[in-house]
Nucleic acid binder design. Sequence first.
DNA 1: ACAAATCGGTTGTTTTTACAACAAAAAGGA
DNA 2: TCCTTTTTGTTGTAAAAACAACCGATTTGT
Lengths: 219, 219
Amino acid sequence: MNKYIGVLKRTQMFAGVIDDEISSMLSCLGARIKSYKKGEYVLRQGEHLRDIVVLVDGNLHIQKDDYWGNRSILGQIAVGELFGEAYMAPESSALLNDVVAVEDSTVILFDVRRIITTCPSACRFHAMVVQNMFFVISEKNKRLVQKLGHMSKRSTREKLISYLSEEAKKQNNASFTIPFNRQQLADFLSVDRSAMSNELCKMRDDGHLEFDKNQFKLL
Amino acid sequence: MNKYIGVLKRTQMFAGVIDDEISSMLSCLGARIKSYKKGEYVLRQGEHLRDIVVLVDGNLHIQKDDYWGNRSILGQIAVGELFGEAYMAPESSALLNDVVAVEDSTVILFDVRRIITTCPSACRFHAMVVQNMFFVISEKNKRLVQKLGHMSKRSTREKLISYLSEEAKKQNNASFTIPFNRQQLADFLSVDRSAMSNELCKMRDDGHLEFDKNQFKLL
DNA sequence: ACAAATCGGTTGTTTTTACAACAAAAAGGA
DNA sequence: TCCTTTTTGTTGTAAAAACAACCGATTTGT
C-alpha cells in the first residue's frame, strides 16, 4: 500500500498532508487495498457501501445497465479521484450504480465512519482530511450539476457542444482528450451512438471542430 | 430571525441541536435573513456564492434559461432544505444556475467558511453541524444521481416512470403529490410539455396510473 | 502474422419527439 | 360575479433520434 502514498499525496482528499502523516493515517482510517482486472466489477448496484474508494491506478466507470442491455454511464473516475461520497449518510448506503474497472485498476478503501469521526488518538491531519472531504464532495456535486446541464440539452448536437466545451474549459485548452470512446460517450450523454457519430461528423464538416479518436479540438 | 428557530431545528443541518444552541449559533455562523416575492431571483447564474442558503419559508426552483427561452429545472428546494453545497470549495463559487422563488419565500444565509472552520469560541454543537452537513451534501449528491437516472432514460414515458416511481418510493405511498405543474415537470425532465401530457394520458388510459393536477397514483 | 473482435462511420427506415396552434377547464383578480 | 390569465389536454405536421444493418479500419490475442 505504501507504494501508492505518492499518488494519495496528490489527491484532493489528502491535500496538505505530508507523506509520514499519510502513512500513519492509513491504519487510522482502516485502509485496505484491492486490485481488479479490466472488465471486473468493483462494486455492484444495490450493494451496501461503507467505504470511500480512492482510485490509485487504472480507470473506473460508474454505470448502469437496464433490463434490455442499454447502458448509461454516470461518470468516470480517474486516478486520484474517489467514489462513494454519496453514500456516507448511514441510511443511504444502497448503491444506485455499478462501478466497473475499464482498465486494470487498484483502489484503496477507507472506512467512512473513521473519516467523519475524528479519531481519539487524534492524528494531526485528520481534521484537514475532513475538511478536504467537504471540498471533494462539493466538487462532485458540482460535476453532477454540470452533467445534468449537458443532459438537459434537447438535441444530440447541443449535448455534444455542452459536453465538449466544458471539457475544453476544464482542461483549459481548445485541444483536449476525452476519457471515452464513441460508444462510451454516447452512453454518457444518453444518445444513440450512430446518430451521435453522424452529428459529430456534421459538426466537423460545418467547421466547428476537429477530432481524431478521442482527441478533439474546438474551432 | 428567531421566529424561524423552530423551522431550523427540524432541518437536517441542525439535527440534534437544541433551540438555545441554534440561537447562539446564528451569530456564530454569521446568519442573515432575506425575503423574496414570488418570481424574484434569489441568486443568479454566474454570481459568486459564499453562503449556504437555507429555505425557512416558501418554495425555490433551481433552474436555467437558455438564449432561446428554453427553461430547464434542475431541482426544487422545499422548506428546511438548503442550497449552495456544490459551491463550498473556494475555487468553485460561480453559480451554474439561477435560484428563483416560485412562492413568496424567506431564506437564512450562513457563511460557508464559518461552517467548515470550527470556531475558536467553540460553540458546543458546531462539530455536530459539520457532521450533519456531510450527510446533507451526501444526500444531495444522491438526489442528483437519481435525477441523472431519470434523465438518462431515452423516452418520455420511461423518464416519467422513473421519476414517478421514485417519488412514490420517497413518499412511501403509491399516491403522492409532486411539487411541479405540467410545464415545470416537463422542464424538470427536459421534455416537451405537450408530448409529456400526451404520454401521461396514454399511461392513464393503459391503466398504469391515475392523476389529478399534481396528485398522482401508481397502479 | 493471422484471425477475431472492437471501433467508428454511413445509410435507409421506423419511431419518437418537438413544435405550433387551438380549445376546454381552472384559477386568480378586479 | 365576470373577465383575464394560466393550466392542461388534443391534434397534425415537421424534425430529430433511435434502430438496424453494414463496411472498412484498427486493435487485440494467440
